[in-house]
Amino acid sequence: MAQGVCVITEFREGKFRRVSFEIASEGRKLADALGEPLLAVALGEGVEAVASDLGGYGVEKVIVVDDALLKDYRAETYVPVVAEILQNLSPKVILTAASVDGKDLSARLAARLGAGLATDCTELQIEGGGLKAKRPMYAGKAFAWCEWSDGAWPQVASCRPNVMDCLAPDTSKKAEVEKVEVALPAGNLTQVVSIEKDAGGKLDLTEAEVIVSGGRGMKGPENFAMLEELAGILGGTVGASRSAVDSGWRPHADQVGQTGKVVTPNLYVACGISGAIQHLAGMSSSKYIVAVNKDPEAPIFSKADYGIVGDLFEFLPAFIEEVKTLKSTC
């Protein structure tokens, strides 16, 4: 009989990723609702040393496999090991991170275990003794509540990073660590060949989650430094409107719009851009749009979730300070 909640952690370069703590915290909540234990599986090189820390987030017991072969995530080593552990543990609910590796792992585990998987969940609850998961669809234009069929254990869900609350760790608590020795398959079906830092470090517009864009309202190329700074803090990149590009302030590669790049970041900050349709066509699918413009009639405001009517040269420095403060506290 299936029992308990099990979280699969991610351990890289000597420490757990933050998302592991998030799913542990979420797992604790679910385990409490079920009245069942919270377990964790931790694989990695050197993970044994810190595995008990998971107790601070409510994990009762951690199954650990510590091996140099587990330094990086590779399906051929991770999947059979984790699947075997899980088959032995037989948990009701399995949580993973919806990271690049976590997505691969969760989908493979689900296929191997014949389980149902809900990916990229933003909210989880226990209802009728089982899991109920909320997840975005249609690029966030809708949310689905997923439920598992009767008796379809385990219920696997991957959790979107940075969404679920992370408990403040109770460092006094340590989890029980059970080290498992398994014969790791010496598979080398996939491997990382190299990692190449991007030249100039500029993230491509089409890949950026956050874009800070400037238009003619920036008044000159020198003022884009402000946008660079903001984009830097937000982990994003800088874009530009056609008129800013036409004026020679920014290269054409930065142009967002009908004849430039079509972008869909989570956050698009339009500074001094009036929002002609050729620009809107390139960015209106962004999840959240912020507009800063002195002209309250500018069409960009009709598309903006948050509009700031005013002088961007006053507003942006203040905003940058606020974001800096926020980033330093979390």
Binding site: Q258, T259, V262, Q278, L280, A281
Partner: peptide, 19 residues
């Protein structure tokens, strides 16, 4: 590429902006 973009927009949404 920008011409291709506009043609695809016509195909799917019958307007040049793809709205």
């Amino acid at each position: 590429p920008e011409v291709q973009n506009v043609m695809r927009n016509w195909e799917t949404n019958s307007n040049p902006w793809g709205l």
